[in-house]
Design a protein around this nucleic acid. Structure first.
Lengths: 118, 118
DNA sequence: TCCTTAGTTCAAAAGTTATTGAACAATTGG
DNA sequence: CCAATTGTTCAATAACTTTTGAACTAAGGA
């Protein structure tokens, strides 16, 4: 870990909700959740926004305590802070992700990599 | 009912999250949840914001589908749309309200009316 | 070393949301 | 009818957020 992250008890509910209230960031979180445990780098999200803009949104997610970003070489490995979020706000992340899955207005997650290694 | 409300399936997750991400509105929702079933009028929230500003925030909550506002005389009776939210996004409202209860950065709810009729 | 890849930073512009006060409308009680 | 109560609307402003492009840093491979 290298970049500044809030500790678990510094995570604030209104900030988490506001951060997840942005469609781009919600899509990022859904994608991370669908690949739970697999650290992803920013390039995985380039279909969602420009590189600069992604940097901005990923920083927001990190600063809110929703994701963890670890610098590895020139990459940032990004993971969901599921354990910490579950500890701090039990059930919240699960219900948000489940809700996103049933909101027909939101795009299906992970559509852009249809069996890449088939 | 008189003012425009979205139907249950028009309720959008990012909009609900963004609306609940504002501290004033989150406080309103927590208060409504603590008085579940009792319709409240705007004056109950005057400690949270000015009258004009409340009108704005209550309209946001209504337009997002979080609350229902019914015009009765010169009052608006405001209730949580718990049934609809639970149907649309199961568990979401509960986990948000529970999370708000355990976030020490948020004020305790319903403090300003300490047994009014004691 | 030089080039490429991965991502950040900065400043500007664009867009959105929140807050305010003054004026307004509608209902109710005297 | 008059006045008070309840809440809305409007326009202005303030404050924030998002998006952009150009310039940058840092690591890794040839």
């Amino acid at each position: 870990m290298s970049l500044p992250h809030p500790t678990t008890d510094q995570i604030s509910l209104p900030i988490v909700l506001a951060v997840l209230g942005d469609p781009t960031r919600l899509a990022i979180v859904r994608y991370l959740a669908s690949k739970e445990g697999v650290p992803l780098n920013c390039s995985k999200f380039l279909d969602l926004a420009s590189k600069t803009n992604l940097s901005y949104h990923l920083a927001k997610l990190r600063e809110a305590g929703v994701t963890r970003s670890e610098a590895v070489g020139t990459s940032r490995l990004i993971t969901l802070r599921r354990d910490d979020l579950d500890k701090r706000f039990p059930g919240l992340l699960d219900s948000v992700i489940a809700a996103a899955g049933t909101d027909p207005a939101l795009p299906a997650v992970g559509v852009s990599e249809v069996e890449v290694s088939a």
